[in-house]
């Protein structure tokens, strides 16, 4: 089984949605996926934050237009994309321990259910080295 590793550094809705689209595409192709949640991205994975839409880093002036269009196109939320991918292939989400602490998450119970573990940066680098596809978002 081919392997895809994603370094997810942005918690911006547009970036999370883009990552979700890629994950679902890779799931359809039976890729094994590992997602390393770094820096600002970890904020979205802290329990209670998954519905936030305040982070829209790239082109913030287009936030309302994009959110409206995504709804009109019946596009799943970023979390729904992540869950769909997990339903169809082996997807693991690891929270960088530093990133978790930045947003008040230190233990597994602090994060949403799709999270599989807390990691150090060495694990991410090893996964990136071994992957057939490595994407940094």
């Amino acid at each position: 089984m081919a392997k895809m590793t994603i370094g997810l550094s942005s918690g911006s809705i547009d970036k999370l949605t883009g990552a979700g689209v890629m994950m679902v595409g890779a799931a359809a192709d039976d890729y094994e996926i590992e997602v390393y949640v770094l820096l600002t991205a970890a904020r979205a994975f802290v329990k209670g934050n998954e519905g936030l839409t305040d982070s829209f880093v790239e082109y913030p002036e287009q936030k309302e237009e994009m959110l409206s269009k995504l709804k009109e196109l019946n596009t799943p939320s970023w979390l729904e994309f992540f869950e769909q991918a997990k339903e169809f292939t082996d997807v693991k989400f690891y929270i960088c321990s530093l990133a978790g602490k930045l947003w008040g998450g230190e233990k597994m119970e602090d994060f949403i259910d799709i999270v599989d573990g807390i990691c150090g940066i060495g694990q991410y680098l090893d996964a990136a080295k071994e992957a057939d596809i490595h994407i940094s978002i």
Binding site: P76, Q84, F88
Partner: peptide
Amino acid sequence: RGTACPGPLLEAKK
């Protein structure tokens, strides 16, 4: 027809 990419691909997979 009610979904955009990658929805139809996932529907096919299902």
